[in-house]
Design a protein around this nucleic acid. Structure first.
Lengths: 143, 143
DNA sequence: TTTTTAATGGACAATAAGGTCTTTTAGTAT
DNA sequence: ATACTAAAAGACCTTATTGTCCATTAAAAA
């Protein structure tokens, strides 16, 4: 569904938040292992997440990644826009620029509601809400 | 939503079928122009469509692309599987291998119905049904 | 203050997606 | 037959995605 960068970013952030909730502060090695993603690439992605301001990093011994609890929650939509852009969230399946009720593409009527559902979902769900739902063992479910 | 190949293939095939319904047999130059896609790339994609057997081609003067009316209709799903694979149609947004009702990823409950809708849509709609819905000028709606 | 630890930065490599160009092949019409 | 037309084939190119590697920097512990 999403591209790799979005997927790894999503899993990483949810994992970090999930650990933070238990007062733990995971590092890159642990994160990459748990979410089953390439370590160096995950590091690169998390670097971007830090620059954007989605999450904080702490260097040195005992360091790792932490969320700033005082900051607003991060929606899935914000994350997607930061990684792969709006492609999945807007535009019609036919690739038309002007596709609306008046000038509908052949898929318009059936596709509209689906796209709306996706947008609703990614606007409502946040890294935090997803981390709360992650109660079982994390790693065993991936790959 | 879809990748370029799927998009161009979809638009091409729907355009061809739409023209066929009017007893016309468009060639590559016309098709690429009308669907606003790169000609050489569209040619390559249509070549694949011909090899797969989705559409027929006729060489030489008066040639072009035609659907075999005796063949079964082509669903959007068949097309997608042939171009970009099942990625959009299956798997969970979280990238988990085992994501089901028993071991749900944090997105499972909300994502399931959306994915089902997409699958229903692409299984029901065909090149032919989309071509029938294309009654207005084709080109003006794209880009 | 030195050592250790862990993230950062940036260059680089591999693969896939998207796209072009030229020659060949197979038809059609004259 | 010959000329013309249009798709087929395949080599090649460009860009984006998905990575790797290594030196640097910042923080904590000893």
């Amino acid at each position: 569904m999403f591209n790799k960068e979005t997927e790894y970013a999503l899993r990483s952030l949810v994992y970090i938040q999930h650990q933070n909730y238990q007062n733990l502060r995971p590092g890159i090695e642990e994160i990459a292992k748990e979410i089953e993603a390439p370590q160096a690439y995950t590091a690169k992605i998390l670097q971007r997440m830090v620059r954007i301001g989605f999450v904080n990093s702490i260097k040195g011994k005992g360091g790792g990644f932490v969320f700033d609890e005082s900051k607003p929650k991060i929606t899935l939509k914000q994350l997607i826009l930061a990684t792969e852009g709006a492609k999945i969230l807007e535009g019609c399946g036919f690739g038309m620029k002007y596709c609306d009720a008046e000038n509908p593409c052949p898929l318009h009527d059936q596709f509209g509601p689906i796209r709306d559902s996706i947008n609703r979902l990614v606007s409502e769900e946040t890294i935090q809400s997803l981390a709360r739902k992650t109660n079982q063992a994390f790693k065993v479910l991936i790959h």
